[in-house]
Nucleic acid binder design. Sequence first.
DNA 1: AAACAATATCGTAATATTGCAATGAACAAA
DNA 2: TTTGTTCATTGCAATATTACGATATTGTTT
Lengths: 119, 119
Amino acid sequence: MGATKTHHFTERQNELATLIKALGHPARIAIIDYLLKTESCICGDIVNELPLAQPTVSQHLKELKNAGIIKGNVEGNAICYCIDDDVWHKFKGHLNGFFQTYDLKKNNCCFTNVKHKDL
Amino acid sequence: MGATKTHHFTERQNELATLIKALGHPARIAIIDYLLKTESCICGDIVNELPLAQPTVSQHLKELKNAGIIKGNVEGNAICYCIDDDVWHKFKGHLNGFFQTYDLKKNNCCFTNVKHKDL
DNA sequence: AAACAATATCGTAATATTGCAATGAACAAA
DNA sequence: TTTGTTCATTGCAATATTACGATATTGTTT
């Protein structure tokens, strides 16, 4: 089908997947990298930085914007894209929970258990 | 095209994007959720937990495995999937760097600057 | 107003993803 | 060895993604 059956999953799972998915492309990682690395957040600078055509970059920016990760502000003729502080922190929180649960659990699944049993 | 131009990006950007992309689906979040929540990591239990047909779950497991996030161990008739400790920590490190950079930078992009300038 | 600059949108082609029924392969149990 | 169980793979249909040329839009400059 190609269409995700989102209604079967929890809201958290869908939200998190949406945020994560928005970052799941090297071009979009590169955009965030750029925003983290420089003072500039002018669309034109991002287009120049990336090895992709302007419409393609515009599309990637749109996806990041749709996910809420960045927001665009008109600044005269140009548009300035910045990371959305609220969403970014929410995202960070989600992921922290994820990794913390793992650390607390100690990953003693079958394979590990088998190894121990065999000793 | 539909084919990502990976060769234009850095190895880190591609690696990170691959890991992130593998998690960018609610079913795959649900799988990891399940592995974090329970002692079981038997494929059949995961299939029962998820609201998707067995072949679909198998495919999602395969993608997580391809990305390296989980690994499967044969255990008699069943297969036990567990989170790969090394890849998981590498992933965590990547993301920590990401979020740390943000925290250090304080996100003073155009919009924020404009607000301050206008005060 | 006319010309330019910066972005977005449209249209389209190529490819990827999602989902499942049907089937196959491997092992376990009878 | 037949039967059942567990999981992977195949094949396919529906949809989504990626990429870009052409074009529209909006604001700026002259």
